[in-house]
Structures are given as structure tokens and as C-alpha cells.
């Protein structure tokens, strides 16, 4: 095995182990306490909170905040997803429409200004 191949193989191994370890930790240390009220409390509210975090962090990153767009290039497609999903509650439809809208704006097919 060449040095470069050895590095790549160990790299993949190290990355895989580190990723698995972080996912394993709560099960290894807290497995017996899954009935605890605190675990129930976190289990009930964490998922919604984490989803909101992912949106709050990634949506602004996908937008251009300079004049004259002011983030509308990502906020408009996001609003489309929200409205469509509240109206039809069809995950595929909401995502597809939002993504096509965003791509059209980013590629200049739709001009906001």
C-alpha cells in the first residue's frame, strides 16, 4: 500500500469512528434512563427546536443580503414552501416548488429587480 492510500484509508476510518461515536454517546450513557421525565421533556421539544435552528442558520446563508435584494432571493422561495405546505401539506410538492423557484432566481431566469 502506498503512503497516500494508507493515509486515505486511515482518514476514512478515523472519520467514520468519530461520527459513529458522537451518535452512540447518548445511548451508551443514558440508555437506562429513557423513561426519566427530563429525557421525555427533551425528546418532546428538541426535534422542533433543532429543525428551527437548521432553518434559521442555513436559510440566511443561502440568501444575498446586499441591496437591492435584501435576502428576498432565498426568503421568497422559503415563503413559497411554507404557504404551499400549510395549504396542501404535500412534502414533495412544497420542496420541489421551493427549489425550482430558488434555482430560477439564482440562475437569473427570474429577475427580482
Amino acid at each position: 500500500m502506498s503512503n497516500e492510500t494508507l493515509y486515505l484509508v486511515s482518514f476514512i476510518l478515523v472519520t467514520a469512528v468519530a461520527t459513529f461515536l458522537t451518535r452512540l454517546m447518548p445511548f451508551a450513557f443514558l440508555g437506562k434512563h429513557s423513561n426519566h421525565p427530563l429525557a421525555q421533556h427533551l425528546g418532546r421539544y428538541l426535534p422542533a427546536g433543532i429543525m428551527a435552528v437548521l432553518v434559521a442558520i442555513f436559510l440566511p446563508r443561502a440568501a444575498h443580503w446586499q441591496t437591492p435584494v435584501f435576502g428576498l432571493d432565498a426568503l421568497l422561495p422559503a415563503a413559497l414552501v411554507i404557504v404551499l405546505h400549510l395549504w396542501r401539506r404535500n412534502a414533495l410538492l412544497s420542496m420541489l416548488a421551493g427549489t425550482i423557484c430558488y434555482m430560477a432566481i439564482q440562475q437569473g431566469v427570474i429577475n427580482l429587480v
Binding site: 422542533a48 442555513f58 422561495p77 414552501v81 412544497s94 420542496m95 421551493g98 430558488y102 434555482m103 440562475q107
Partner: peptide, 15 residues
């Protein structure tokens, strides 16, 4: 370009 928005749309839907 812009296809990565699919993931943000997914997070919004799941929210």
C-alpha cells in the same frame, strides 16, 4: 446552481 435549496426546503417542511 441553487439545487442545494432542496435541503432547506426539507427542514422547513419538517418544522
Amino acid at each position: 446552481t441553487g439545487i442545494e435549496f432542496a435541503l432547506i426546503a426539507l427542514f422547513i417542511v419538517l418544522c
